[in-house]
């Protein structure tokens, strides 16, 4: 029987398998590998008319030019600061929510809460950005609340520190449902007999959480934490792009938005690519490190 199967399999040629892969390979070759090769323009004096192949090579000139731009250090600092704060809060807030939600015994209540917390995750930054700008505008509801407390209305979106806080807060708001659900799933996976034993020993809910729930969630907390390490230079491109304005460039201009303006508004293709390559280089190192750590600590693998 299995001989016959092996024989049939051998006769069943693998050509169809290659054919099935062809469309995916083509698309990937053009739109993923094409840009990867296009990165060479970071080392060229790129002329659109000449293309990647014929433009003049200039070595590290574009990098030197960009690193010496007066805003570059500020942009780098903004990126790391905003991204790290996002990583920390996007881990802590959902963790807290999952622990609180876990204490809810009424299922209908649990479901309503979970549904509404998860909702913003599915909306675009075009919509959410519009909502936030509306809320924080000068005659918006937040400012009328501020006025009713007897304070001066604030231009939240035109103030660097407020704007940064809003960027971080709204990102946590959009994403918290996702990690919360991952955490809730981890809690469900904890062995129920541990809780029974703890109850027999007289441990209350608080002690159960500290000694059973949290340690049980540690692997997934560490895993998500490590994997987000690779995103330390991703401060949230489309979110910031839709909400920022020149007044808050100082506090909220990040590598991606900087590259976008440099490349597509100022038409400085090559220097913008150099910034992009600088970012990808660091990100690649960090992502590799984070996957290695995730594999080592949590046995996590993509395949």
């Amino acid at each position: 029987m299995s001989d016959k199967l092996a024989h049939l399999r051998r006769r069943n040629s693998n050509i169809p398998l290659h054919l099935m892969l062809l469309p995916g390979v083509l698309v990937t070759l053009i739109y993923a590998y094409g840009p990867i090769l296009g990165v060479v323009m970071a080392f060229q004096k790129y002329e659109p008319a000449l293309g990647f192949l014929k433009s003049e090579w200039v070595g590290w000139e574009n990098f030197e030019y960009v690193f010496n731009l007066p805003d570059f250090n500020q942009v780098l600092w903004n990126t790391v600061l905003i991204a790290s704060l996002k990583i920390v809060f996007s881990l802590m807030v959902p963790l807290l929510l999952a622990l609180l939600l876990n204490e809810v015994t009424k299922n209908w209540f649990k479901r309503i809460i979970q549904t509404s917390i998860f909702l913003p995750f599915f909306l675009s930054w075009a919509v959410l950005g519009g909502v936030i700008l509306e809320l924080f505008s000068l005659n918006g509801p937040i400012n009328s609340l501020v006025s009713s407390l007897g304070l001066e209305p604030t231009m939240f979106m035109g103030n660097n520190s407020w704007f940064r806080a809003i960027i971080i807060g709204s990102d946590v708001w959009k994403g918290m449902g996702y990690n919360m659900i991952i955490f809730l799933a981890a809690i469900t996976g904890i062995n129920a007999s541990l809780y029974e034993a703890a109850e027999v020993d007289g441990a209350g809910r608080w002690k159960q959480m500290v000694h059973i729930t949290l340690p049980g969630m540690m692997p997934i907390i560490i895993l998500i934490g490590t994997l987000s390490l690779g995103g330390i230079l991703n401060a949230g491109f489309d979110q910031i792009l839709i909400m920022y304005n020149p007044i808050v460039y100082e506090g909220a201009d990040v590598i991606d938005t900087f590259t976008y303006r440099l490349g597509l508004f100022s038409q400085q293709f090559a220097p913008a690519t150099a910034v992009g390559l600088f970012k990808s280089g660091i990100s690649l190192a960090l992502v590799s490190l984070s996957y290695y750590l995730a594999y080592k600590f949590s046995n996590y693998r993509i395949f």
Binding site: P35, L37, V39
Partner: peptide, 21 residues
């Protein structure tokens, strides 16, 4: 083939080269 596809998770050309392609 798996490597061919998986590499694109880690490497990307970035905004400008993608736009040009």
């Amino acid at each position: 083939y798996v490597w061919f596809f998986a590499i694109t998770i880690f490497l990307g050309g970035g905004l400008i080269p993608t736009f040009i392609i």
